[in-house]
């Protein structure tokens, strides 16, 4: 990384963090907008996890929403039936999602490209069927409603439910942590391995790097974030049904990553911020959400394979006089 980029980058990150923390407070009086802000943070978290796989490893995990569903259902059941604290249940749910993700994904990880994506589609369909037909834990298509908000115990102040602006701030922090984790992973040696695997897994293997192992690690972290997001989603929205975690949800999270720019850190954030609020902002158009997202999937694939940020980034770097830009994926699709 060149020095000339350092200042704008740090300034940008500081600005973004400040903005993310200030936004919930700014709209705190208007619950509707505050809710959209919260949902957007959730999607930032989800896209970070999806990006680690689809952007940096080149695998498109269409079972992502199913894993989020596992995180959500495990957490909700622990909290509502077993009376476990959300703050203990949520990590357990996330780990459950990650374990299921790795166990189910492990055989599929040997596959590449289309065959991996297809088997992830199969796994997603199977998970959706499980959610619908095991109503003991999910209440089937009726869904689970009135999921309580997490409670926080502060020394000296007693116990209170995490609601309103505090919940949005928590989601903001969670989203930032997720982005931070993905940033750390991809800037490390591991990250270099992941990119090497994406670019040419046969060559990477030949160089003595254990391709499957690094794919599994990426898969674990990605699924962990999916499950964590699912747990937060359930307790934030207070309602989950199998439809919240179906294949279209996976596809839409993928769309946000691809729209922003796969394999960049900021791209998925851009994608989530632009696309996640659409169905809520355009209330009258809610029914057409699927059409809008579907059209965007087609358009992004045809015209903007590198994504909004991914197309902007090289120009930005050139303007700032930075060194030759790192290769941004997208031109060759995966």
């Amino acid at each position: 990384m060149t020095d000339r980029l350092r200042v704008p980058r740090v300034a940008g990150v500081v600005l973004l963090v400040a903005l993310a923390l200030a936004l919930p407070v700014a709209v705190a009086d208007r619950r509707f907008y505050a809710f959209i802000v919260g949902i957007t943070f959730l999607h930032v978290l989800w896209t970070a996890g999806m990006n680690l796989l689809s952007g940096f490893t080149g695998l498109i995990p269409l079972m992502y929403a199913g894993l989020a569903g596992i995180g959500a259902y495990v957490t909700v059941n622990l909290v509502m039936s077993a009376g476990v604290s959300f703050w203990l249940a949520m990590p357990l749910g996330a780990v459950a999602a990650a374990v299921v993700g790795v166990v189910l994904g492990l055989p599929a990880l040997r596959l590449r490209g289309f065959y991996f994506t297809l088997s992830s589609l199969v796994i997603q369909s199977a998970l959706t069927l499980l959610f619908v037909y095991f109503p003991r834990f999910t209440q089937g298509d009726t869904g689970i409603s009135q999921i309580p908000a997490p409670t926080v115990t502060l020394p000296g102040l007693g116990t209170a439910a995490l609601t309103g602006v505090w919940f949005e701030e928590t989601l903001a922090v969670a989203a930032m942590l997720a982005v931070l984790v993905v940033w750390r992973v991809t800037r490390s040696r591991w990250g270099a391995y992941l990119v090497a695997i994406r670019e040419d897994d046969v060559l990477t293997e030949a160089l003595g790097i254990d391709v499957t192992r690094f794919r599994v690690i990426a898969f674990f972290i990605s699924s962990l974030l999916a499950g964590m997001g699912g747990a937060f989603y359930a307790h934030y929205v207070a309602f989950v049904s199998p439809r919240s975690f179906d294949v279209l949800t996976s596809l839409n999270i993928w769309l946000m990553v691809a729209f922003g720019g796969r394999g960049t850190i900021a791209g998925p954030i851009v994608g989530a911020v632009i696309l996640a609020p659409i169905p809520y902002l355009l209330q009258d158009l809610y029914l057409y959400k699927d059409i809008i997202y579907g059209v965007l999937i087609v358009l992004v694939t045809v015209f903007l394979p590198a994504g909004v940020w991914g197309s902007l980034l090289p120009r930005l770097r050139a303007r700032l006089g930075a060194a030759a830009p790192a290769r941004v994926p997208g031109k060759e699709f995966v």
């Binding site: 289309f114 994506t117 279209l248 596809l251 579907g294 999937i297 694939t301 045809v302 995966v334």
Partner: peptide, 15 residues
């Protein structure tokens, strides 16, 4: 894989 994604998009449009 491009086609899979594009046709999933189409499927979502039709749905």
């Amino acid at each position: 894989i491009v086609y899979l994604v594009v046709t999933l998009g189409l499927a979502q449009i039709f749905a």
